[in-house]
Design a binder for these strands. Structure first.
Length: 724
DNA sequence: GACCTGCTGCGGTGTG
């Protein structure tokens, strides 16, 4: 074996030999050398089951064994985004550590109190924890952080891409800074990831002050061959004898996926239930054993475990129809094919999903993309005519093949999470002056875009008598106010993300899953849920329970959701596809026919030469040719002038009212830099968990920073005016 | 026009 192997501690070498491994993988050898020969932070990027965990832990465990820390404290900290992932990884690490008396401590909400108490008394070895449980340690045991982590050599962050610029990612980066401040020295950071669109940005996220010293270790090549098909289907119209597009897609899935393990990404929980129901019926009709199961976050843990077990190690063929629940996380083994119904929202998700297939030597990765479009009639809208879903699928596959995916958005302020961290630091220290808070969170921590003036505004909002989250002593120390105490004391404080209220669905004492509270149901209604059909018997509003019993028919429930966000590059590529005349080889005849139709209509409506087209007296269509953030900004501006506006991928449909000025005149004014109020017709600004404690002014600033781009408004408007 | 993720400490009762 290699020289890297020789650097490892004896017990680790022994364990590797016992596995029958003839050599270390390239990323493992490189990670070992980097960790032994430098103090650098590092990012290890490789596909699922590519040996990333071992790449980080072989050398880390070896270093701990070769030079045990004096005194107590955890030697290595691992942070994982899922409880299931922590349980999985703890099992793997225990295998390596069992002969060396290095404790492996899983720590999350489902771990028993006794395990936690024991670990607190004698902190040692590897601690595997969620961001929320780490947050809880800071809030509840703020003074013990230095004792627990004083000896920690490294922090391993798993699935780094999931925490880059989410609220949760900002929370984690804030906690890492606070950890280093508490023990008064930096801790080596090691990020593990599969999908990273922009490596330089990822390095800057891992270590903002020293990104150039983040070593990047990427698995080279080795990507499986990709087999790809995009099939087109039409829904609506025609007579009753033609099968619906849903039936046709289900029939195709049934025929081609039966007999092996597969993942079908259906895009929404409601569609998961619809397709799982159809596929189940097809099995019953053919008198075949059931092998298609739904999987999404509203289904009970029991049911999800069952489906995951069947995928993982059961010999029975299993296809999960799922949402992004099966996109990352625990190892479910290799699947034969990944199907995607409708275009996804990001190329990153598509890439991550595809990574679930083609992992076995010599097996190709297979992607079956289904595009379902509306059958056209004489009064079809321009959106249907342009077949935007199909076009987006093509654009995304194009970008996927080029290796591009969405980078993080570094400009967002994350004021909701800032509120959370202010309260958390005050709780940790039992009080803090404003300048210390600013220094910890905004100078050292991740909130670097926040000026002292804005920080003061946030503190004022939190200290306002009606909010009552914080108060100030005569000496200038900030303490938790009455409402602040109440908020921080409750266990729901630790997570920074918002969760909707839900009803529990129960049949015969068994919990099937949950439904959002705004889903209006009444006794007697029939429901498809968890791949079966149910009759609603009773609804208990106070206990938030819905009692159901098996039934023969049903309709899928409505789950609701947030608007998606499509990147500029995806929209730009969609317009390239509409303008081009190439015919991708991976499309079937139906899909090619639909593409041809879309291109013809694109030219016919006049978008080849113009971006502003009038359809009748009141209706205009603007081809913005840019992504969701910029398109939404223009839509808000126009609504401010009284237009009613509908938004699509790269397009706006604008309706003039009785009082509205001419659209071209408004666009000219915007193009000349007239200041417009984007929030005049304001929608809901309370999108994050701690938003209710901020002023309207701060909420608008936060919305602009994360969801809008007012700076490009004038340029955008000028582009349309110049064409007139 | 969508999806996903997480949670402490205490007091009560029961068991060996």
């Amino acid at each position: 074996m290699s020289s890297a192997f020789d650097q490892l501690a004896r017990p680790v070498q022994k364990w590797i030999r016992q596995q029958g491994w003839r050599e270390l993988r390239d990323i493992q050898a490189r990670a070992i050398r980097t960790i032994y020969e430098s103090e650098n932070d590092l990012i290890v990027a490789a596909s699922t089951a590519g040996g990333k965990t071992e790449a980080a832990f072989f050398p880390l465990i070896s270093q701990v064994l070769d030079a045990p820390a004096e005194g107590g404290g955890f030697d290595v900290l691992y942070i994982g985004p899922l409880k299931a992932l922590i349980t999985d990884q703890a099992g793997r690490l225990e295998g390596i550590c069992q002969e060396v008396e290095l404790p492996v401590v899983p720590w999350h909400g489902d771990v028993s109190q006794s395990v936690k108490t024991r670990a607190m008394k004698n902190p040692k070895g590897i601690l595997l924890i969620t961001p929320e449980s780490l947050e809880a340690l800071f809030v509840r045991r703020g003074l013990e952080i230095a004792r627990l982590f004083g000896a920690t050599r490294a922090v391993v962050i798993d699935e780094l891409h999931t925490v880059l610029d989410s609220e949760r990612g900002v929370q984690l980066r804030s906690l890492l800074t606070r950890l280093e401040l508490a023990i008064k020295r930096p801790i080596r950071r090691i990020g593990l990831s599969a999908t990273l669109g922009d490596m330089d940005l990822a390095r800057a996220y891992l270590r903002p002050d020293n990104a150039e010293h983040v070593t990047l270790i990427e698995a080279d090549g080795g990507e499986a061959e990709l087999k790809l098909q995009l099939r087109g289907y039409l829904s609506g119209g025609e007579d009753d004898n033609t099968p619906s597009a849903t039936d046709a897609v289900a029939a195709h899935l049934f025929e081609h996926l039966r007999g092996s393990d597969n993942l079908v990404f259906a895009g929404a929980r409601q569609r998961v239930e619809i397709y799982a129901d159809r596929l189940r019926n097809l099995c019953e009709q053919e008198h075949l054993p059931q092998e298609f199961y739904p999987h999404h976050a509203s289904l009970s843990r029991d049911h999800r475990d069952f489906v995951e077990r069947r995928l993982k190690d059961n010999g029975k063929p299993t296809t999960a129809v799922c949402t992004s629940t099966l996109e990352l996380g625990i190892d479910i083994g290799d699947v034969t094919c990944v199907a995607q119904i409708g275009a996804p929202f990001t190329v990153a998700a598509l890439r991550q999903r595809l990574g679930r297939s083609g992992r076995r030597e010599g097996q190709p990765a297979i992607l079956r993309q289904y595009a379902v479009e509306t059958r056209l009639s004489s009064d079809s809208s321009f959106v249907d005519r342009l077949r935007l879903g199909l076009i987006r699928s093509i654009a995304m596959i194009d970008l996927l093949l080029e290796g591009w995916c969405e980078p993080p958005k570094p400009q967002a302020l994350h004021l909701s999470t800032l509120v959370h961290q202010i309260l958390s630091v005050i709780a940790q220290r039992g009080g803090a002056p404003a300048n210390v808070l600013y220094s910890v969170l905004c100078r050292e921590g991740p909130f670097r875009q926040i000026s002292t003036a804005m920080f003061t505004d946030v503190l004022r909002a939190l200290g306002h008598p009606e909010t009552g989250l914080i108060e100030q002593t005569d000496g200038g120390l900030l303490l938790l106010g009455q409402n602040g105490e109440r908020l921080v004391e409750h266990y729901s404080f630790y997570a920074v993300f918002k969760t909707p209220e839900e009803y529990r669905l129960v049949s015969n004492g068994r919990e099937l899953g949950t439904l959002p509270i705004d889903n209006i149901l009444s006794p007697g209604m029939m429901l498809i849920f968890s791949g079966r059909r149910w009759l609603v018997q009773e609804i208990h509003d106070r206990e938030k329970v819905i009692m159901v019993k098996p039934a023969k028919a049903g309709v899928p429930p409505v789950f609701g959701g947030d608007p998606g966000e499509i990147h500029d590059n995806v929209i730009a590529r969609m317009f390239d596809v509409l303008k081009a005349d190439t015919k991708p080889l991976y499309m079937d005849a139906n899909a090619l026919g639909m593409l041809e139709e879309a291109r013809l209509n694109y030219a016919q409506i006049g978008f080849t030469d113009a971006s502003l087209v009038n359809l009748g007296e009141e209706t205009s269509i603007i081809a913005t040719r840019v992504g969701t953030m910029k398109t939404t900004t223009l839509a808000l501006a126009l609504r401010g002038f009284g237009f009613s506006v509908e938004q699509y991928d790269g397009f706006l449909q604008v309706e003039a009212g009785d009082e509205t000025p001419l659209l071209t005149e408004v666009l000219t004014r915007i193009g000349e830099g007239e200041v417009v109020d984007l929030f005049a017709g304001a929608g809901n600004l309370l999108t994050e968990k701690f938003h209710p404690y901020l002023t309207r002014e701060l909420l608008e600033i936060d919305a602009v920073s994360s969801r809008l781009e007012p700076r490009v408004l004038a340029t955008l408007a000028r582009a349309f005016v110049s064409q007139l």
